[in-house]
Amino acid sequence: MIFEPRFLAPPPAAVMKDRVVLCFRLDLLVACFGGSRGGGTEIATPRSEHRKPQTKPPSKMVSTKIRMFHLRSRLALIRAGTGAAILPPEVRKLGLTFAMKNTDGHMGPRKFWRNYLPRLKYHNPNVDMQVHRDRESGGDAMLVIEFDGGKTETIDVKHKHENDIVRAVLESTKAKPVPTSEEDAEIVAQYELYKVRMEEQLKINKRKRAERRAEKSAIGGIGRPA
């Protein structure tokens, strides 16, 4: 007997349309309720409910008012004070050389660099000012002033106070001091008063910590930590 292969006839178009609609609706139900076709349906829980609530640490940023107060004070201290002077146009360059360590007479040049040289640079932006710090201690500390035409003048600043150094620079260059404005004078006075209050508060905090340590040691180490 010879068997002839038989092919199943495709279902009618209406049946195919119903199957497609049924599959689409099942997928829609699964997507909405988070279930599966074989395991039933279940309501999906939002992911946000599984997460633990995140608590942000308290902000440690200083207020804008305090930061602006410090910025205005620093700018006023640069604009006004000893060393705030305008150098004559023939001065071309200032070169300061001292050691990185403050020993052996290099403390004065270091303080001149930190406190007075920024004021000179603020009022004389066109004058080149260079600072070289040697790693070897005990060397020379020199301040070289360069004028037009290649003329130079060297000042030995080793073992000198910073006030004496800035006075020597102003005398050698014949610079004109810049008068302090009323606004800068008021800002500087407020800043100095603020520094005094902060130093007093630091002393109070230090005394309180010492009292807590003494109290803790008196009761055998039981008490509040210092």
Rank of each mutant, 00 (worst) to 15 (best):
E153R: 03
P46V: 08
Q201T: 11
S63H: 05
L29C: 11
I222M: 14
Y116S: 06
H106Y: 03
P118C: 10
E215R: 00
T41A: 06
A185Q: 10
S181E: 01
T154S: 12
P177L: 06
E199I: 03
D27K: 09
L94P: 05
L170N: 08
P225T: 10
G40P: 10
F112A: 00
V127E: 02
A80E: 01
E183S: 13
N205Y: 09
A141Q: 07
K111D: 01
Q130P: 08
V196Q: 04
V169W: 14
E182C: 00
I222V: 07
G220D: 04
H106V: 06
L87N: 00
A9Y: 08
T41R: 02
A189D: 12
L193H: 12
R207K: 12
S172Y: 03
E192Q: 11
A76F: 05
T55N: 01
P58N: 10
D148Y: 00
S63A: 07
T154I: 07
T154L: 09
F24T: 09
E153I: 00
P57S: 03
Y116D: 07
G34N: 08
K195N: 06
N124M: 11
P177I: 09
A168E: 14
K203F: 06
V188M: 11
A80V: 10
V62R: 14
A214M: 06
M100H: 12
G105A: 03
S137G: 11
E4M: 07
E171N: 12
L22K: 15
P46C: 07
V166S: 13
M68P: 03
D148W: 04
A76K: 00
R74H: 09
S217Y: 05
G105S: 06
S181W: 05
I66V: 13
M142K: 12
S36Q: 05
